[in-house]
């Protein structure tokens, strides 16, 4: 138990250090973007958060696959926690993306930003995941249903991405462009630190949340045993 606690503390510490370092680097050290100036620095927050959200969904799907494979109930909780984290990072992606859109183009929402559109679709999809979980009694059946739906999610990500690209040809012509910035060496370093920070944050939140939920379940069992 103490070992696990130690790991959680180390993870949390590493995540905080990386976060502070990443933010500091992004704000003060990264070179100013030629076109967008200072505001472009939100890139160092927005993109790592988005990539972390994908990682969460992927991790959740992997645990879902393990559940269906081994039928061990602990994977249900792990998959659910990962997807839960994914939704939080997904909402942050939508918020930071929206802020960036406002700064760059003066609008809070634009359908021509693919990643933003994709996250809106995923947000709806994973909200339905929660609805599904809430309307099925906890137990093996719910674990199965959630796992299958989580697996559909990772199949939906690339398919939706493709669909959004294809839709641009007829929904409306692309007015705004935001080419992936040609990252210089130092920009790339900052980006990597920020990505590592976000992944560390996910790992830390995930371990804590999982530990909390396990403790909760254990407590309930003990309380029942006492009755």
């Amino acid at each position: 138990m103490s070992l696990r606690n130690n790991r959680a503390v180390v993870l949390a510490a590493a995540a905080s250090v990386l976060l502070v370092a990443g933010l500091a680097l992004a704000l003060f050290w990264a070179p100013e973007d030629a076109d967008q100036g200072f505001s472009q620095r939100i890139f160092y927050v927005h993109v790592p958060i988005a990539l972390t959200a994908y990682a969460c969904f992927g991790w959740g799907a992997w645990k879902a696959l393990r559940l269906l494979w081994t039928r061990e109930p602990r994977y249900d909780l792990e998959s659910y926690t990962a997807v839960h984290m994914g939704v939080i990072f997904g909402i942050l992606t939508l918020v930071t993306g929206s802020i960036w859109a406002k700064i760059s183009w003066g609008v809070w929402w634009t359908w021509s930003e693919r990643q933003l559109t994709l996250f809106l679709v995923l947000f709806l999809f994973y909200c339905a995941y929660f609805m599904l979980r809430f309307s099925v009694e906890p137990g093996p059946r719910r674990a199965n249903l959630s796992a299958v739906y989580a697996l559909f999610g990772v199949a939906l990500i690339p398919v939706s991405f493709l669909a959004i690209r294809l839709a641009e040809n007829f929904i409306h012509p692309v007015v705004f462009t935001r080419d992936g910035p040609q990252m210089s060496g130092s920009m790339f370093v900052v980006f990597c630190v920020c990505l590592a920070a976000m992944l560390g944050l996910f790992a830390s939140l995930y371990t804590n949340e999982l530990a909390g939920k396990r403790l909760d379940a254990r407590l309930r069992e003990l309380r029942e045993a006492l009755e």
């Binding site: 679709v121 709806l124 339905a128 609805m131 939906l156 959004i164």
Partner: peptide, 28 residues
């Protein structure tokens, strides 16, 4: 899936619509 849940009729559209957005894109 929806038939196995309590919400049934309510749940199906919520599960279904996000998944079939690509079908609409392809069809249109």
């Amino acid at each position: 899936m929806a038939a196995a849940s309590r919400a049934r009729e309510l749940l199906l559209p919520l599960l279904f619509l996000p998944l079939v957005i690509p079908v609409v894109v392809g069809g249109v």
